[in-house]
Every structure is written in C-alpha cells, then in structure tokens.
Design a protein around this nucleic acid. Structure first.
Length: 382
DNA sequence: AAGCCGGGGTC
DNA sequence: GACCCAGGCTT
C-alpha cells in the first residue's frame, strides 16, 4: 500500500470517527433536554435500575410505572426481594404478564444476595450470567447504573440503528440482530454511555417510531441513511408473523360462602405459578367435566353456564366458557391430577397474596352475580 | 433457528 | 384488526 493511499484510508477512518463523535454529542444533548421524567431515571441504585429493566422487557413504559413503584416500596433492596415468598412476588407482578420474569427476578435477587454479597456486578459479562438477564438487560444495567461503555439493543434501538445505517436485514433474524449489535457496539461512547443508550431508546419511543417517524424534528436526521434515501418508512424490514390459533377452554368458578376453589399452575408453562379457577381445554361443559374433576371440581357440583371470556395472548387466542357452581360445603381437596395444576385451595375471591392472571380476574368477574343490565347482555349474546 | 411466554396502547 | 413494546429461555 502506498504512503498516500494509507493516509487517505486513515483520513476516512478519522472522518467516520469524527462523524460518530458528533452524532453522540447531538443525541445526548437532545436527550438531556427532552427526556421524559421516568421514576427509574431519578435513581442510581443498580437494584432499582435492574428491577425497571426486567419489568420493561417487552412491556411499555406507561404500563410498568405503577408496578415499579409498588415493587420498590415493598422490596426496597435486593435482600428484601431475595427473602420474599415467590407467591408474594407473583402477587405484585399480577397483570404485568410474562410471569417467568417474576420467577427469574426472584432467583436473580437470591443469586446476587448469596453469591455477590448483595451487590450487583458492574460488567455486562458478569451480569449476563445472572437469571433473567440477557444481552439487553446486561448492557442496560452496566451502562446506566455503572457508566460502563456497554452496548444494548432493544426493539427501539434495532429500529433506530436500522434506519440510521440503512440496514437491509430482517431485524428479528439472527443475521440482522448480529449486524445491529455490531453497530451498537461500535457507536457506544466512552463518555456517558448510559445517556447514549437511553437516548437511542427515547428516540425510538418518541420520534423514530414504527409507523410515522417524526423525521422533521429528529435531532439526528442529517446523519440518517434511510432518510437520505427517502426510505425511512420502509425500514426496518421485519419478517412475517403467523396468526395465533384459537383455543376453546372451560373454566369452573366454584363458591361456598365467599370462598372460591383455586388451583395453582405448575411453574414453567403458561401462567406458571399463578392461581386461578380450574380451567381446562374443552369445547363444551360436558367434555370438560372429567378434567375439571381432576382439578378439584367435585362430582356433586351442579355447573351452570354464565358467560364467555375472550383473552388474546401472543401466540394464542383463548375462548373460555365460564361455569359457575355453589358448593354446599368446603369439600376436602386432594392433589390435582389435571395436567397444569399442582395444588388446590379455597381462597377469597381476590386471592390476596398470590399471583393471579388478568385472564383469571376476567373469569371471576364473569361469574360474579350480575346486575340486571349485564345479565341481559350475556343472554342476548348466547 | 424457531417456539414459548401476557397484556395493553395505538394506528 | 394489525402491530409491537427498554427480551429471555428452552428446545
């Protein structure tokens, strides 16, 4: 390579570096000026920041805020969380979804308490070893709580970087994610990496949005390759997702003097660790009876249909027929034999202190003795 | 690499 | 309805 060419190459590399340094200054400046005031941005406590990041996995900021506040109030530090009962953790998590996160959160707290002396490690590689902490959360905690120059990629960052660099790959594919991550790692600055990462996410959430990006007010529009090509609405490219199948279910709400029959689901699967009125896959009440008996619903229970509940999940649409019965006594409960359940109990309607899904709450509400208007509505639909 | 795992806001 | 959100784990 000639001396002259070498200098040119070096010169271009220097130009790129200068452009990226400018980009970092611009974006961080914008972030300082226009960042939303979010609860977890008022603390430097790694525990609180970690808690917020786990709650924010696949979950919107507005949804998380009240859960974050309640959680932090009940469990002010990692040891408090580590020593809690899992049922109480799930209780505070109820309604937030993806309940495995709550179990992993609890286990992670126990790992930090027992193996790290109650102190979160600062390096992403160490954080990554803990339960429930993947590449994103490791980068987030390391950069935001510890000012380490760790990269991070979430849905927002993937979209922003795909547009900024006009990346053609499917951003959900392995190859696409690998490319996005390499860009993220190249761009993360030594100075204020936490502000940089949060700025990328903030930009994606408020300006560089999926549908109608507000390029006219974007602080980095002049550096955006997609915009330069007029393709900001075509990028990023995302693969097709398939429709979720419908699943017919039957639930039985059994009551005796204000106590309700609840079953606890085994950990691991759908709604793992949560309590609910017994609920089985079946088309009709008659078909459901054998499985319901295996979930504690005694033969003597006279079941009547009281309504239907629909519930949409990521990969399934549940259509639940709700049955109701008055038990003449609190009959003794044995170990359930129906698949998803591990334990039975008579509980108050609210099932205080344990985890209950939104679906279960909808089923309980549907079985509640009705006011006249609601009753007519159900009959009209049937 | 693909599937599983909630719930809800927005267009 | 469709989209997708401060993803991670399992197979």
């Amino acid at each position: 390579m000639s001396k002259r060419l070498k200098q040119t190459t070096k010169g271009r590399a220097a130009d790129v570096a200068a452009r990226e340094a400018t980009l970092a200054v611009e974006l961080k400046g914008w972030f300082r000026k226009s960042a939303r005031d979010l609860p977890w941005r008022r603390t430097r406590d790694p525990y609180a920041i970690w808690l917020s990041e786990v709650m924010l996995q696949q979950t919107r900021v507005e949804t998380v805020i009240p859960y974050y506040e309640r959680f932090l109030q009940r469990f002010p530090d990692v040891r408090a969380l580590a020593s809690a009962e899992i049922d109480e953790v799930l209780s505070l998590w109820s309604g937030l979804g993806y309940y495995r996160r709550a179990r992993e959160l609890h286990r992670c707290a126990q790992e930090v308490a027992s193996m790290h002396g109650g102190v979160f490690p600062a390096e992403a590689a160490e954080l990554r070893k803990l339960r429930g902490i993947g590449p994103y959360t490791a980068g987030a905690v390391s950069s935001i709580a510890f000012d380490r120059p760790a990269a991070l990629v979430d849905g927002n960052v993937a979209r922003v970087l795909a547009r900024l660099e006009a990346i053609e790959d499917d951003v959900k594919s392995t190859a696409g994610l690998k490319r996005i991550w390499s860009v993220a790692e190249r761009l993360v600055p030594r100075e204020e990496p936490g502000a940089w990462n949060q700025a990328l996410m903030e930009l994606g959430a408020t300006i560089c949005t999926p549908q109608n990006p507000a390029c006219l007010i974007c602080p980095v529009r002049d550096a955006c390759a997609a915009r330069a090509q007029g393709r900001e609405r075509e990028l990023p490219i995302v693969g097709e997702k398939r429709a979720s199948p419908r699943v017919a279910m039957v639930a039985a709400v059994v009551e005796h003097e204000g106590r309700f029959l609840f079953a606890r689901r085994k950990e691991g699967g759908l709604f793992g660790g949560l309590w609910e009125p017994p609920m089985v896959e079946a088309q009709t009440a008659e078909d459901a009876k054998p499985s319901l008996r295996g979930a504690g619903v005694a033969v003597e229970a006279k079941l009547t249909e009281v309504g239907r509940v629909e519930h949409v999940l990521t990969h399934r649409e549940l259509d639940v027929l709700v049955l109701r019965a008055r038990a003449d006594r609190l009959w003794p409960l044995e170990a359930p034999t129906t698949a998803p359940y591990e334990r039975l109990a008579w509980m108050e309607r609210g099932a205080e202190g344990v985890g209950v899904s939104t679906l279960a709450r909808k089923i309980l509400a549907a079985a509640k003795p009705e006011k006249k208007g609601a009753t007519r509505k159900k009959k009209a639909r049937a």
